Computed example of a mutant assay.
Amino acid sequence: MKQKNSLKLSILAILSVLTLLLAGCGGGSQQASGGNEASGKEQTYTFKATHVTQETHVWHQTALKFGEELDKLSNGKMKLDVYPASQLGPEKDMVSQLETGAIDFGFLTNAYMSTRQESLNAWFMPFAFKSLKDAVAVRESAPAKDMLKELEAQGLVGLDFGFAGNRHILMKDGHIASPADLKGKKVRIIGSPAIQDFWTAIGAGPTAMPLPEVYTSLQTGVIDGIDIDLDALVTEKYYENAENLTLTNHFTFPTVIVMSQASYNKLSAEDQEIVKTAIKNAVDWGVQEAINRESANLETLKQAGVKVEELTDATSFESMIKQVEETYSQKSPIIKAFLEETKK
């Protein structure tokens, strides 16, 4: 009996050792969504990115390009799901989700972010850029990089700036040659402090409203015109309710591309570099695409019957320009440095 018990104990001991050995040899690749930790030989990621524009917009196309670059540079271990047209909520909610890591990447409008960070108003200094190409050139400047660095205080990693195009003026009645043509007119603007101040200085009635309301507001006469970039104008077809376009280049319109600090911190140093390289490659492509679209979109609008004129002399706006520049230069040294950069 004792011999049998001893044999049983020996067998149990052997089985226990085998179990431990098998456990040590086990494992494998486990998917991590949004940068969550995973165990195994190679960690994979399925990131979430979001923005406010339609799928035809250059920002969405840039986000898709970013996904392609991530996949290529990571040898397939990084994937990106893109949620366009505010599918994950308005920008205020997007930022809240970015802060917690529920969303990994955001292509946020500089307009909204300028309400959260003073220095970003630099991009909305009036008539700072004669063309989109001029605006893109400042993307790599020291003041632009300083703006991205400041985003760390909000739990965000500032990655880059993309562009949709410069801003122009579409009116139901007539074109724009001077501030007098805008006095008392209700013009839909994007909600940014610097933009609001400029339009107020002109004497217009700046009216901030969500994009989905703009089409019917033009149609019903709630507003007289809009401050718009050509890509959005073509995408949203506002020209169906207002046919007078003045090419003014009075603002540019960037997207601030950010990553959740919470998500970023979960990546290895090597994976962080993959993200940075992928976004640079995508934005380099995207800004060139935006420049190319300026002429293509203009031709599309002309073919659609839009009456196009160009503001060739902006001297009548000089007092408003000076007023806004002086106000915001005093608010942020980055804005002051940015303006000096644009005037070189």
Score class of each variant (00 low, 15 high):
Ile291Lys: 04
Ser33Met: 15
Gly40Lys: 03
Gln330Arg: 14
Gly27Val: 07
Leu80Asn: 01
Met125Ile: 12
Leu64Phe: 02
Leu159Ser: 00
Gly24Met: 08
Lys302Pro: 10
Val306Cys: 02
Gln219Cys: 08
Thr216Asp: 14
Ile176Trp: 04
Ser96Cys: 06
Ala63Asn: 03
Phe251Lys: 08
Ala85Asp: 15
Gly305Asp: 13
Thr19Ser: 14
Ala32Arg: 10
Ala208Val: 11
Ser192Gly: 05
Gly67His: 02
Thr277Cys: 04
Ser33His: 15
Gln43Phe: 12
Gln87Thr: 10
Phe338Ser: 05
Leu148Arg: 03
Lys280Thr: 01
Glu273Trp: 13
Glu91Ala: 02
Ser319His: 08
Glu299Tyr: 11
Gly27Lys: 14
Gln31Lys: 15
Ala314Trp: 14
Ile321Gly: 11
Tyr238Thr: 09
Glu294Leu: 07
Val324Lys: 06
Pro126Ser: 11
Thr255Asn: 15
Gln43Trp: 14
Gly24Ser: 04
Lys185Gly: 01
Ser332Gly: 05
Val306Ser: 00
Ala102His: 14
Gly221Tyr: 07
Glu118Gln: 13
Val58Lys: 01
Asp93Trp: 12
Ser131Gln: 09
Gln330Ser: 11
Asn281Met: 03
Pro90Gln: 06
Gly205Cys: 09
Gly162Gln: 02
Glu140Ile: 07
Glu236Asp: 15
Glu310Gln: 15
Met147Asp: 01
Leu148Asp: 02
Pro212Gly: 04
Met209Lys: 05
Ala337Ile: 06
Thr109Cys: 01
Pro333Met: 13
Ser6Gly: 12
Val58Ile: 09
Glu118Leu: 12
Thr312Val: 12
Met209Leu: 14
Thr300Lys: 08
Lys41Pro: 13
Asn249Phe: 11
Ala180Asp: 15
Leu70Thr: 04
Ala153Ile: 09
Lys276Ile: 06
Leu21Thr: 08
Lys79Phe: 11
Ile274Trp: 03
Ile176Gln: 01
Asn110Trp: 01
Gly158Asp: 03
Glu118Ile: 13
Leu151Thr: 02
Thr200Gly: 10
Asp160Gly: 00
Asp284Phe: 02
Asp271Arg: 05
Asp284Val: 04
His57Asp: 10
Gln154Ile: 06
Tyr83Ala: 05
His175Lys: 05
Pro126Asn: 02
Ile257His: 00
Val324Gln: 03
Val287Gln: 05
Asp160Ala: 03
Leu88Gly: 08
Ile103Tyr: 01
Gln154Phe: 15
Thr53Glu: 12
Arg188Lys: 15
Tyr264Gly: 00
Ser217Ala: 14
Lys266Asn: 12
Ile14Gln: 07
Ile11Ser: 06
Ile274Cys: 03
Gly191Thr: 11
Asn281Glu: 09
Val138Ser: 03
Gln30Ala: 13
Ile176Lys: 01
Glu99Tyr: 10
Thr207Phe: 10
Asn265Val: 08
Lys307Trp: 11
Val308Leu: 08
Glu99Asp: 14
Gly27Gln: 15
Leu159Met: 03
Val306Glu: 05
His175Val: 10
Gln3Val: 13
Met209Glu: 07
His175Thr: 08
Ile335Thr: 04
Val258Gln: 02
Val287Thr: 09
Ala135Arg: 04
Lys280Val: 02
Phe124His: 07
Pro84Gly: 07
Val258Tyr: 03
Met147Ala: 00
Ala23Ser: 11
Ser316Pro: 09
Val283Lys: 01
Gly205Asn: 13
Asp104Lys: 06
Asn244Ile: 07
Tyr83Trp: 12
Tyr238Asn: 11
